[in-house]
Design a protein around this nucleic acid. Sequence first.
DNA 1: CTAGTATTCAAACGATTGTTTGAAACGCGA
DNA 2: TCGCGTTTCAAACAATCGTTTGAATACTAG
Lengths: 206, 206
Amino acid sequence: MQQSAQFSTRQRILGAAEELFAERGFAGASLRQVTAAAKVNLAAVNYHFGSKDNLIEEVFRRRLDELSRRRLERLARLEASGTASLETVLDAFITPALELSLDRRGGSVFMRVLARAFAEHNNNLRKFLSDNYGHVLKEFAAAFARLLPHLDKDELYWRLDIAVGALTYAMADFGMIQRRSGDSERAHRELMARHLIHFTAAGLKA
Amino acid sequence: MQQSAQFSTRQRILGAAEELFAERGFAGASLRQVTAAAKVNLAAVNYHFGSKDNLIEEVFRRRLDELSRRRLERLARLEASGTASLETVLDAFITPALELSLDRRGGSVFMRVLARAFAEHNNNLRKFLSDNYGHVLKEFAAAFARLLPHLDKDELYWRLDIAVGALTYAMADFGMIQRRSGDSERAHRELMARHLIHFTAAGLKA
DNA sequence: CTAGTATTCAAACGATTGTTTGAAACGCGA
DNA sequence: TCGCGTTTCAAACAATCGTTTGAATACTAG
């Protein structure tokens, strides 16, 4: 295995796939479109990833591994320092996603891909995500349970479910709110994260 | 034009298309799969709808026309009777969607199709929905503006955007919450609507 | 019953899909 | 420089895609 002076074929494919999956969906983006955008040969996808389905999983793995690590790291730090509150725990969940979406190298599109995964009721994909990253949600749910002891288990899960919906939708930039021409992309997204934490904290403790 | 003793070819196609679009997406569901599920000839789609794109639009039109009518009707009734509050206006928006999703004839799948439309950044589809049903969101936004006069315009739109996200996600049943085996589908969805209104009202007024 | 329209049907169109192939080109340790 | 494993490449595979065609059938107005 050798590394090109530029980006490796693997990474070029992953980047192009991420972008096209966000724009046209998993079924809507063909491997020919992906390999053309990545400027690599068509057969390279099956050589490096085995199949289109494996490529899709790898697009998630590339981002979610680090995203999950950062979220859990922040949560652990809050618990250790005894500064865990509704707002700080929400921040621990949202800020890593915000940082990812601000990453120069196409992190923002990935959040759209992630939202598509929710829209897909594809069982294989859901199982893959649940198996590999379900423990992150579980840890955060436990933290919220400690912060909202007056809520019974059912009530808590209802609210967390709704909260995840709001977060997913907002981070994927589905909404109708356009960035104000004066604001930078960074400022726009940071503002959104602040509103998101404020709104969700209120809903959780309502 | 004649009406079959059962359902017309048009309606059979619309029903099957709705179900398959919800399950596999617009690109992922082929016309051959749709016509096979509807038990009609392949050419019937292009005969009755002209193209796949037109079929997609018609799937939305069939449900959204009445959904929008009912939402606006409830909102107008609240304004007329002077009983508009955050909770009742949210109810006016949510309850018609809830009723639709409880409709025996496949209304619940449509909410998943609608959520897919948000995931699609397809400009044609977004323009179609905005042109035909954007006025409904505008009316509700105006109602919320009257109920939350202390919020400036930007602040209000941020919160409405997040609220729409939570509603979309929840009504599409994206979440991880499984129906409790004791509850009926109806009871489950009504419970969800109650939580949704409570959560969102708190977020809006926070 | 007949004329004429509306609908259904099997078949085929060219284009595109994911995947496979075998040879060519490359990169590096010996 | 040689040999060998890794990677790229053009070409082709069968399968499926949305759409079109023209004939067969179903229906309705006169």
